[in-house]
């Protein structure tokens, strides 16, 4: 009796930190969902393959370096911006796909019963999944985008150009910062909604994921005089588009012309001219504080519901 109770107390005290439990749970997510890593890598691979094709093509032409156009900062910005946008969108699609699948897959494959047989609480398990979609995936996308930017910078430095390295780095910084906000804050409510759907439905998560919001919008449009939902939806979509899009030349012009700024999600107001781009990144946070906070709050609510749901989840 004595030995038993002493063993019980000793075993109760032997526990791993939440950090360790989440860390290992994240690793096993990455073992299962290779697309988190390979999706963005393949995306960048496709870009680099295109470059290769392009290089092979121009190598056939006679080289007249004197005829090469001088590459300005704006060209550099839009070039790297297009690739960053591309990678960011891939990241979002991969993340949404992961979020809509993970809680459903473990129920459908009955592996839930194995995960639940280990001392990892549902909160830790779901937190690990959230960390994969909101930390690991953005980190991979941003690292690849940064790698691409530096590669381009390195190559173009040998060609005629009229930008300074520090200016170029500042431009890249802004773009990466916006992509980070896009993948970590703007995407959060979408992922959280996908988690919840994934934890509740028995099949066709994508249908529910998109169908329910679209259905609600339609219902509001047809059956009520209100347009609250559609305004939120437009705002949300606009905000995402603004964060990830690279077309900012127009707004630079608009800004220079002294026109009043459009609403944050209505276009590229704070893109400004590239030299001051870094500052505009910080402004994004200050001026978009309210919608971003809303994103975080909505995400937190859905994620919490997903945890509660997983506590009661049964294999299907």
């Amino acid at each position: 009796m004595n030995t038993l109770s002493s063993k019980l107390t000793s075993s109760t005290s032997a526990r791993f930190s939440a950090f360790r439990l989440i860390d290992w749970s994240m690793r096993r997510e990455l073992w299962e969902y290779r697309s988190i890593i390979w999706g963005p890598v393949i995306g960048l691979g496709a870009v680099l393959a295109l470059y290769l094709v392009f290089l092979v093509k121009i190598s056939w032409l006679p080289t007249h370096s004197s005829h090469m156009p001088v590459i300005g900062l704006e060209e550099l910005r839009s070039w790297s911006g297009i690739v960053t946008t591309f990678l960011g969108l891939i990241g979002f699609v991969v993340g949404l796909h992961y979020s809509a699948g993970t809680l459903l897959a473990e129920r459908r494959e009955r592996t839930l019963l194995f995960w639940k047989s280990l001392p990892v609480s549902d909160a830790h398990a779901v937190l690990a999944k959230i960390a994969v979609s909101l930390l690991v995936l953005p980190a991979i996308v941003l690292a690849l985008a940064a790698f691409h930017d530096l590669l381009v910078l390195g190559v173009l430095a040998f060609l005629p150009h009229d930008w300074s390295v520090s200016g170029a780095l500042a431009v890249f910084g802004v773009q990466l910062g916006r992509t980070a906000l896009f993948l970590m804050v703007w995407a959060a409510p979408a992922y959280a909604w996908a988690f919840l759907v994934s934890g509740v439905v028995r099949r066709a998560p994508t249908l529910w994921l998109l169908g329910l919001p679209v259905g609600l919008l339609l219902a509001e449009h047809m059956a009520t005089p209100f347009d609250w939902l559609s305004r939120v939806a437009t705002g949300y979509a606009g905000m995402g588009g603004a964060l990830i899009s690279t077309i900012r030349t127009q707004t630079c012009v608009r800004h220079a012309a002294g026109l009043p700024p459009a609403p944050p999600w209505g276009g590229e107001v704070h893109g400004e001219c590239v030299q001051t781009g870094l500052r505009s990144g910080a402004e994004l946070v200050t001026e978009w504080g309210v919608p971003m906070t809303a994103c975080v709050v909505v995400a937190a609510v859905f994620f919490t519901l997903a945890v509660l749901r997983r506590r009661r989840a049964e294999a299907i």
């Binding site: 019980l8 075993s11 109760t12 032997a14 526990r15 299962e32 494959e109 009955r110 592996t111 839930l112 019963l113 194995f114 639940k116 047989s117 280990l118 001392p119 990892v120 609480s121 549902d122 830790h124 294999a315």
Partner: peptide, 19 residues
């Protein structure tokens, strides 16, 4: 449950280990 699972093991059925 988390504390309990440090004391208890279970095999639900043979098919639950992820493929």
């Amino acid at each position: 449950r988390e504390r309990l699972m440090r004391e208890v093991s279970f095999i639900a059925d043979v098919a639950v280990l992820p493929r």
